[in-house]
Amino acid sequence: MSRLSAAFAKGHAALVCFVTGGDPTPEATPAILDALVEGGADVIELGMPFTDPMADGPAIQNANLRALAAGTKTAHILAIAKAFRARHPDVPLVLMGYANPMITRGAEWFADACADAGVDGVICVDIPSEEDPELGPALRARGISPIRLATPTTDAARLPAVLDGSGGFLYYVSVAGITGKQSAALASIQEAVARIKQTATIPVAVGFGVRTPEQAGGIAAVADGVVVGSALVDLVAQHGADAPGPVRELTSALSAAVHAARKEIA
């Protein structure tokens, strides 16, 4: 069983935690990732900073800019991932970011680098299924899951195309909008996840606007996983290199809520 599959087969919903790589500095990121693992995160999403994060709200935009201002390069992100894999052989690690930094040296180069670093999956915000040839084949050839997003605008007719060629889990973006803003009502999330699971054979994790253990626990009762990003990134913004403590604390509270929520959807 792959690390990602295992993370969703623990008998409880998975907590997926996002932070931006290189924020506040490339040197500070490993300890923040360790804090996520210690707090009970089941999947780690490591953001690759980009100058133009079009799908992100102010919190993650600023994290991207802080990381770049600190001199973060793609080489740092890959080194952070590789070192993480050495420290945590069993915790799945996913890279998340935008197309241009991923494909700029060619998809084959990037997929090789991901494989070498022990990366399990890649979420590329601006490569929808229509542009899959850009990166998907190179990732799949190396056993790395292209993780796609589905949104409230992804209707039933379109869903099979989104799932085709995707792997790991489906990231359901619960609101039409950017990261870190409003959150969706639990009832609408439950309805959407149920609808998606009629078609999807991979786990469905729900994110965007999830900030508190209460919200996370509510979603964990109706989905296979819960993604938390901006709330953690806010802590990094606030505490900088001292973020691991507060990050561990929030992650512990989130994971307690997520792991205790009863799964009502098989």
Binding site: M54, D126, E131, E134, T154, V173
Partner: peptide, 12 residues
């Protein structure tokens, strides 16, 4: 060219 957009925009 192409359509390199977030999934939310794709249906539109």
């Amino acid at each position: 060219g192409g359509r390199y957009v977030a999934e939310t925009l794709m249906p539109l």
